[in-house]
């Protein structure tokens, strides 16, 4: 297997695990972890595409944008999780679905 084929397997694996986590998780912090895994798959795909096309620097500049946005999403998601825990006493998303305190 070439390096590119190995990377495609990695991209599909990380994206699959991230999607699986989003489907089965009910804990708010676990949902943020799943999003992180999914975005790692997307970043690996970007870098692999740049490596394949010979434009690795362009791919890196795109991946920097992705990692900045991903980190901000993680920060806001974790802060929301902390506030939800303080106010409702749980991290379970199902408990929030009723929109009642």
């Amino acid at each position: 297997m070439t390096l590119l084929e190995i990377m495609v397997v990695g991209v599909l694996g990380l994206a699959g695990v991230g999607m699986y986590g989003l489907l089965i998780s009910r804990n708010l912090i676990k949902i943020v972890v799943s999003l992180q895994v999914l975005v790692k798959g997307a970043m690996l795909a970007l870098i692999a595409a740049g490596y394949a096309s010979g434009h690795i620097n362009l791919a890196q500049s795109m991946a920097v944008t992705v990692i900045v946005a991903d980190t901000v999403v993680a920060v806001i998601g974790l802060a929301l999780a902390i506030q939800v825990r303080r106010r409702f006493g749980t991290l379970d998303v199902k408990e929030l679905a009723t929109l009642q305190k």
């Binding site: 489907l23 089965i24 998780s25 009910r26 804990n27 912090i29 943020v32 972890v33 992180q36 980190t71 993680a74 920060v75 974790l78 802060a79 999780a81 902390i82 825990r85 749980t90 991290l91 379970d92 199902k94």
Partner: peptide
Amino acid sequence: VTVLFVFAISIAGEDTSDVRAFV
């Protein structure tokens, strides 16, 4: 990101209750 997670978990606490998944 790991430091952020550890910080958030230390504030929010471990919620290890085993709940059934939506799907």
